[in-house]
Deep mutational scan, measured.
Amino acid sequence: TLEEDLKKLQLSEFFDIFEKEKVDKEALALCTDRDLQEIGIPLGPRKKILNYFSTRKNS
């Protein structure tokens, strides 16, 4: 689940933002850096999230 993935990244504090915006794993895989910025995710966590999901998509 998205919540489990965020826990792996030690970013579970952002789960509420994704839940509020109705972003699940499938939607997050389609998000850009700009999308994450617009919903209030800071730069460092955005980079970690985007890297994590891009490596999952390619495997």
Rank of each mutant, 00 (worst) to 15 (best):
T1D: 11
T1A: 03
T1G: 13
T1M: 03
T1W: 00
T1E: 10
T1F: 01
T1V: 03
L2V: 04
L2G: 02
L2N: 01
L2C: 01
L2K: 03
L2D: 03
L2A: 01
L2T: 05
L2P: 01
E3V: 03
E3W: 08
E3F: 07
E3L: 08
E3M: 11
E3N: 04
E4N: 04
E4I: 03
E4S: 05
E4T: 02
E4V: 01
E4H: 05
E4L: 04
E4P: 00
D5C: 10
D5Y: 01
D5K: 03
D5G: 02
D5M: 07
L6D: 12
L6T: 02
L6F: 13
L6N: 05
L6Q: 04
L6M: 07
L6Y: 01
L6R: 00
K7D: 09
K7H: 10
K7W: 02
K7E: 11
K7L: 07
Q10C: 09
Q10H: 08
Q10E: 13
Q10K: 06
Q10I: 00
Q10D: 12
Q10W: 00
L11T: 00
L11Y: 00
L11C: 03
L11R: 00
L11K: 00
S12Y: 08
S12F: 11
S12E: 11
S12W: 08
S12P: 05
S12Q: 13
E13C: 11
E13W: 00
E13F: 00
E13A: 10
E13S: 06
E13I: 00
E13R: 03
F14Y: 02
F14H: 02
F14R: 01
F14I: 04
F14A: 09
F14G: 01
F14L: 11
F14K: 03
F15W: 05
F15E: 10
F15R: 09
F15Q: 09
F15K: 12
F15V: 09
F15M: 07
F15I: 02
D16M: 06
D16N: 10
D16V: 09
D16E: 12
D16T: 11
F18Q: 05
F18D: 03
F18E: 02
F18Y: 05
E19L: 12
E19N: 07
E19S: 10
E19I: 11
E19H: 11
E19D: 13
E19G: 04
E19M: 11
K20F: 02
K20D: 08
K20Q: 05
K20L: 04
K20C: 02
K20R: 07
K20N: 08
K20T: 09
K20A: 12
K20E: 07
K20I: 05
E21D: 06
E21R: 15
E21H: 13
E21C: 14
E21Q: 13
K22F: 11
K22G: 15
K22H: 12
K22A: 10
K22P: 00
K22N: 14
K22S: 13
V23T: 06
V23C: 03
D24G: 14
D24Q: 10
D24W: 00
D24Y: 01
D24M: 05
D24C: 09
D24I: 00
D24H: 02
K25L: 11
K25I: 10
K25G: 12
K25Q: 06
K25Y: 15
K25C: 05
K25F: 09
K25R: 10
E26A: 10
E26R: 13
E26S: 13
E26P: 14
E26L: 04
E26I: 07
E26Y: 04
E26C: 13
A27I: 10
A27T: 12
A27L: 10
A27F: 15
A27Y: 15
A27P: 04
L28D: 07
L28M: 10
L28N: 03
L28G: 04
L28W: 04
L28Y: 01
A29D: 06
A29Y: 10
A29G: 07
A29W: 04
A29R: 11
A29E: 11
A29K: 10
A29S: 13
A29F: 10
L30A: 15
L30G: 15
L30Q: 14
L30Y: 13
L30F: 10
L30W: 14
L30D: 14
C31H: 10
C31D: 08
C31I: 12
C31P: 07
C31Y: 15
T32M: 05
T32F: 00
T32Q: 06
T32H: 04
T32E: 12
T32G: 04
T32C: 02
D33Y: 02
D33V: 01
D33P: 01
D33M: 13
D33F: 01
R34Q: 12
R34G: 14
R34S: 12
R34P: 06
R34F: 13
R34I: 08
R34M: 14
D35W: 03
D35Q: 14
D35S: 10
D35T: 06
D35L: 01
D35E: 14
L36H: 04
L36F: 01
L36C: 04
L36A: 05
L36T: 05
L36V: 02
L36K: 10
L36I: 03
L36Y: 01
Q37R: 05
Q37H: 06
Q37D: 13
E38V: 10
E38I: 05
I39Y: 15
I39E: 07
I39W: 15
I39C: 03
I39P: 04
I39Q: 08
I39L: 13
I39K: 14
G40S: 04
G40K: 01
G40P: 04
G40V: 01
G40N: 06
G40C: 02
G40D: 02
I41P: 03
I41C: 03
I41K: 08
I41H: 05
I41L: 12
I41S: 08
I41N: 00
I41D: 04
I41E: 08
P42V: 00
P42T: 00
P42C: 00
P42K: 01
P42M: 01
P42Y: 01
L43F: 14
L43T: 15
L43R: 15
L43K: 14
L43Y: 15
L43H: 15
L43Q: 15
G44P: 09
G44I: 14
P45M: 11
P45S: 10
P45G: 08
P45F: 08
P45W: 00
R46F: 01
R46V: 02
R46I: 08
R46P: 01
K47L: 09
K47I: 14
K47A: 14
K48F: 03
K48W: 00
K48P: 02
K48V: 14
K48Q: 14
K48E: 12
K48N: 04
K48Y: 02
K48H: 07
I49D: 08
I49L: 09
I49K: 03
I49V: 07
L50Y: 05
L50P: 03
L50S: 02
L50W: 02
L50F: 11
L50K: 07
L50I: 12
L50R: 06
N51Q: 13
N51P: 04
N51K: 12
N51R: 12
N51H: 08
N51D: 14
N51L: 07
Y52W: 09
Y52Q: 13
Y52L: 04
F53N: 09
F53T: 06
F53G: 07
S54G: 08
S54P: 05
S54R: 08
S54A: 12
S54Y: 03
S54D: 08
S54M: 13
S54T: 09
T55E: 14
T55L: 09
T55V: 08
T55I: 13
T55G: 11
T55S: 11
R56C: 10
R56K: 08
R56H: 07
R56D: 12
R56Y: 11
R56E: 13
R56S: 10
R56L: 09
R56M: 12
K57S: 08
K57Y: 06
K57F: 06
K57W: 02
K57M: 12
K57N: 05
K57I: 09
K57V: 07
N58Q: 06
N58I: 07
N58F: 03
N58H: 04
S59Q: 05
S59K: 02
S59V: 08
S59L: 03
S59H: 10
S59E: 12
S59W: 09
S59M: 10
